[in-house]
Computed example of a mutant assay.
Amino acid sequence: MPLAPSSDPLSASPPARPVAASGEVQALRQRLAAACQIAVLTGAGMSAESGVPTFRDDSSGYWSQFNPQEMASEAGFRAHPQRVWNWYAHRRAVIARVEPNAGHLALARWSRTHEGRMSVITQNVDGLHQRAGSAGVLALHGELMRNRWLDRPRSCCDLQRVAPGEPPSCPVCGNLLRPAVVWFGEALPASVWQAAEQAAQGAEVLLVVGTSGAVYPAAGLAQIARRSGAHVVVINTQATELDAVASQCLTGSAARLLPALFD
């Protein structure tokens, strides 16, 4: 299975491009209304509009002394389980204070009224699409607010019965809980990736929203969709590495453009 990215794509700053014209938005709106299958791939820029800090930026104060990549690996967790657990507790507290933005809500409303026609695929772990009301979200990199066992669970490992601690553990065998996110060097969840590939292959339109296009394998979904004949649209505030793959590029924020396309 594809592995999680080994570097942070958000350090690059591509050049800006002209803001999307109203005619482009209206033409795409009509295309979306006529499409039987739509896929939406979202990245960090989508959540940034809700006030979610990017992976590198989420390290203010005490946490700024640690390398984020060391805090997002199995080796780092095994070496310093309490430190890493508390860093994720900090990140969870940040996420709990933010709300889905107008872009998240527009996708959720449209998918509810057009059941079975939209697949939401996200690189984000914050759960904002789910909180907005989107069903069946394909979270490629896992979900920050959920936990799973560090080692293969035994019959005694029960997520409903854990010994308190930082991190909590199985009271019988001592297996530790860890955040249910994909760490560096780990494979993406096989069933989620397969469903994302199928959604990209079957989409008539793929929207790529708020992602730099530098993180693979997620960025490869745009290429899969284009080869399958989809109309690929990149929505971002600046140029991305997927612009060359796109059939159309719209410049603007997700919170502004997605309601214009779907409401």
Rank of each mutant, 00 (worst) to 15 (best):
L3G: 02
A39W: 08
L150I: 00
C157A: 07
E115P: 07
P2K: 03
T54M: 09
V52W: 06
R227C: 06
S6K: 14
G127S: 04
L105M: 12
A195M: 11
Q37E: 12
Y62A: 09
T251K: 12
W110N: 08
R256L: 09
Q37V: 00
G45N: 08
R112I: 01
T122L: 00
T54P: 07
D8T: 10
A21W: 12
A102E: 11
A93E: 15
P53D: 05
P217Q: 10
S13E: 14
R152K: 12
L258M: 05
P153Y: 04
N175Q: 07
D263F: 01
A260K: 04
S59N: 13
Q160L: 13
I224N: 09
G51E: 12
L177M: 10
V25G: 00
S22P: 14
A75H: 05
G210R: 10
A239Q: 15
Q69R: 14
A218K: 03
N236F: 03
E70R: 14
A48E: 06
Q69A: 11
A254L: 06
S212M: 11
Q238F: 06
S11T: 15
Q194M: 02
L41V: 09
Q69I: 14
A75V: 03
N67M: 06
V234I: 06
G76Q: 06
L206K: 05
A21K: 14
A75D: 15
A79L: 12
T42W: 03
A214D: 14
Q223A: 14
E197F: 05
V19D: 14
S11D: 15
A33K: 12
G185S: 09
G185D: 11
Y88H: 10
L206G: 02
Q194L: 08
V232D: 10
Q238S: 14
C173W: 03
D263G: 03
M46N: 02
R31S: 12
S50T: 01
P164W: 07
A190G: 07
A218I: 02
P168S: 10
G116N: 07
D158M: 03
A255K: 11
M71P: 06
I38V: 13
P259R: 02
P171I: 03
G133F: 10
E166I: 00
G43L: 01
V98S: 08
C156G: 09
A48T: 00
V125T: 14
A27Y: 08
R92E: 04
G127T: 03
R83W: 06
T251R: 12
Y216H: 15
A203S: 12
S22W: 14
W63T: 03
V215W: 11
S134I: 00
V232L: 07
Y88A: 01
T122Q: 04
Q26D: 13
A199S: 05
S50P: 04
V84H: 07
N175M: 03
P5H: 08
A132S: 02
G202R: 13
P217C: 07
E24P: 01
G213M: 10
H90E: 13
G133C: 05
A135K: 15
I38R: 11
V52R: 02
H129S: 00
V245A: 07
Q201G: 11
R112G: 07
T237I: 11
V40L: 08
G229E: 09
V192G: 01
Q223E: 15
H114I: 00
A72V: 02
L144G: 04
